[in-house]
Each structure stands twice: as C-alpha cells, then as structure tokens.
Design a protein around this nucleic acid. Structure first.
Lengths: 166, 166
DNA sequence: CTCAGTGCAAACCGTTTGCAGAACG
DNA sequence: CGTTCTGCAAACGGTTTGCACTGAG
C-alpha cells in the first residue's frame, strides 16, 4: 500500500485530466481516485465503495461507476475482467505500467508479471496478418504456490478421452 | 463453414459425453451442438438462437444456455468474453485447438493465431512464481488490415501527456 | 447564477432459476 | 414410469440511466 505522500500527485494528475476536459473536480471524484491510487490491488466496485465507507465517505455506486469511467478514459486506470462476473480496476502509475496477470483458480489471487516476448508476438501478427496492435491482454490461469501446497487440484470434468476426434 | 459430413462425429462426441455423465441426449441438445460445431466462428447466444430458428428449430434461450454449459464442461467448446457485454462460444475441434485471438477494435472481427512463445512464458512463471499454469488467454486488440485501409484510427482520449508521473 | 454532478431508484440486459408439462431411457 | 429436460416467465446481479436536487466555477 502506498502512503499518502505518493498518492497526492496521482490524484492531481486526474485533476489535470478533468481540467483538460473542462469537467469539475468534485470531492467525490477525488475521493474515488484517492482509493484507487492508494493500492496496487485490483479493486472491485464493491471494494471501492467499502473502502470509501471505511474512511467516512458515503458515495453512491452510480458516482463510483461514473468516476471509474473517467479514470479509465484518462488512461490512468485500467479495467479488468477476470471472469468473476464483475470488473476490477487497477491504476497504471506503478513502476511497471504494462504487465500481465496470473490468476489462481483456487483462491482467486492475482499476481503480475511482465512478458517481453509479447513484443515479438505483436510484431509477428502485424507482419503476418497486417494487424495493428493497440493493446493486449495475457492472463494465465492456474494454481498459485500456496494453493498447490495446500493440495488443490485443477478439476477435469470433460470427456474421459476427448482425442480420437479427427 | 464445415459440411454436414464433418459435423456429425463432433455431435456424436458430445453424445458420448452426455452418456458418460448419465444425461439424456435430447433433440434440443443435438441441435445446439450441431450449430456450434458447424462453424469456426465465435457465436453469441443470440446468433445460435437465430441460426436454430433459420433451420426451423425453436429452442428457448434457457435451453441454449444450459446446453452450452454442458458443451463447455465437456471441453468440446470454449467460452470467450471479448468485452462486448456477452459471451461467445467456439468449438475446440479445429485443427488448431489452442490458439489466441486478434480482435479488431473497429469492426469487431476476430482472427486466430498461435503463439508458441507462450510455452516459454508459462515455464517462466512456473519457475519464478511457483505458479502451475492450467490455461491462458491472450488477446491482442487493435485494427485489422481492412479497417486500417479504410482509414480507421485508434482513438486516444487520455491525458495529453500522461508521463511525468514519477 | 448556470451548468454539470450526485444520489436515489428504476431500468437495462445478459444470464440463471423455479416450476408445470413434455420426453428420454 | 420415474427422472431429467424444456419452455416460459420471473428473478438475478452488475451496470447504466432518468430525474430532482446539490454543488463547483
């Protein structure tokens, strides 16, 4: 968790975006930004709401959604969907702005890693498919170390032998 | 689009899965499987429903959802979420069962490619994080050749200069 | 002052579920 | 014949929206 001293400039950056867009810098917008910038975790809207409540801020969900939309537009925050049925938000002002995610199928934990190989992959699809990459998403799902040590297994419930297809 | 001759064995494979699980092979389940296996596209539930309707089958959405759930469980079909607000389904009986996706931000088109580099990436996260990969998802978003030639541009609406953060 | 933002509650929309009647095995 | 499925419609849950009121500039 960052300390307040590091968060302030990030919130101010969001303020600058709002000013550039001619939008008011409201107390609610600053509070939401403050919460998002104060952690390196991937927060859900519910978690953001609870975090605000804990610090005495009572801000409606609609406002949180609307502010997150602005934060995502400003490119200061990234929206993720890890298949949980809701979105998560992560600020992009970390030392490693572009990174990929490891997601544990057992505990739902998220870890980050970088994958320089993707530059080459993007170059190849550009060459071979004439595709112009703008952004990507790489997620590896599996079992984290702790869950493996706790004996977790990846369930397999498919056909007993799916091969012999062709 | 595959021809009927190639689809039948796939549908039968699904039948085998149902039998293994002690579940009835109903006419509706076969019809849904038939539609999914008869194309290499990434179908939405609405598209599946319409396709069924075109061939005279009138099957409720609930049944389609329930059948897709079985198809995904059997591992014969993969579920995708390309961020459109709904899911898409793709059968896994193509010559290239594991592949990644290119998604055009302009026209929404989807192309497939393979990325052998990911084996190495998975090996590295296993070594460095003790993570045991089960499956992954790599999607590259950008502009396809056609949309580029039509003059499409990737919109940038973020801060005019987001750097100078640290 | 004026225009946009906020909060509430209702609307939305893809998906899931409960239940009476229909089919599979 | 019993168990599971199907279809309908209602419920669900995250997200969005309409509207009267509040607040920023």
């Amino acid at each position: 968790m960052n300390t307040g001293a590091q968060i302030a400039p990030f919130v101010r950056l969001f303020g600058r975006y709002l000013r550039e867009q001619g939008l008011p810098i409201t107390q609610q917008r600053e509070a939401v930004a403050q919460v998002v910038f104060s952690t390196d975790q991937h927060l859900s809207v519910d978690e953001i709401e609870e975090s605000l409540r804990e610090q005495g801020e009572r801000i409606g969900k609609a406002t949180i959604y609307r502010t997150l939309d602005l934060l995502v537009r400003s490119q200061l925050v990234e929206e993720h969907d890890f298949g949980e049925g809701f979105k998560r938000y992560e600020h992009r002002l970390s030392p490693q702005p572009v990174h990929e995610h490891l997601i544990c199928l057992e505990c739902g934990g998220v870890w980050e890693f970088t994958s320089p190989e993707l530059d080459e992959v993007e170059g190849r699809v550009a060459r071979e498919h004439g595709f112009r990459p703008a952004r990507h998403r790489l997620e590896i799902y599996g079992l984290c170390r702790e869950c493996q040590e706790a004996g977790a297994e990846i369930p397999y419930e498919g056909l007993t032998c799916p091969i012999e297809t062709v």
